[in-house]
């Protein structure tokens, strides 16, 4: 079957690649475009490791058809840092020891960024709600919640 050319915005830059018929966005990003930051966890939308934003809304890339992002803005954890300068959320994750094995971290960062973009002063409950679709095995969540709250308060090392 014919592969479909897809032109979209990835982390602020225009990108183009071919998608296989029925290919999901996660595979498209990882194999087609070469952005390895969204992780494959469960492949069925229950772990959150593949979380990206599409036009600012969090979406599970494993459940999203690649073709559906044509012309849209996709953001992944790979786009958070500006060159060598980490995003304040990344700094806060580092400062608060919010990553252990690191597999959930890109999805956590994107869920957190989407939260702070729409609600710069979240409560603890808001944070919990925002990351409730992201499974973490290592941290017990507390350091992640603390990191997101710290980033929101600008307490992270700049």
């Amino acid at each position: 079957m014919a592969r479909t050319p897809i032109v979209f915005m990835l982390n602020g830059s225009e990108r183009a690649s071919f998608a296989d018929p029925g290919q999901n966005l996660l595979e498209f990003l990882r194999r087609g475009v070469g952005d390895l930051s969204p992780k494959y966890g469960c492949g069925q939308g229950t772990c959150g490791a593949c979380t990206v934003t599409i036009d600012g809304e969090t979406q599970l890339s494993c459940l999203t058809l690649a073709e559906s992002v044509a012309g849209k803005h996709v953001q992944t954890a790979a786009g958070l840092a500006a060159g060598a300068t980490l995003h304040p959320l990344q700094e806060a994750f580092m400062e608060n020891f919010a990553a252990q094995c690191g597999y959930c971290t890109p999805g956590m960062l994107i869920s957190a960024k989407a939260l702070l973009d729409r609600n710069p002063t979240p409560t603890r409950e808001d944070v919990v709600e925002a990351i409730s679709g992201n499974i973490c095995r290592c941290t017990g969540y507390e350091p992640i919640i603390e990191a997101i709250l710290a980033a929101a308060k600008g307490r992270a090392r700049a």
Binding site: Q44, S132, I135
Partner: peptide
Amino acid sequence: VDFNHYLMPGPGDI
């Protein structure tokens, strides 16, 4: 066989 049915505490349970 998946995270829908194999339960674990989430961030709201801690």
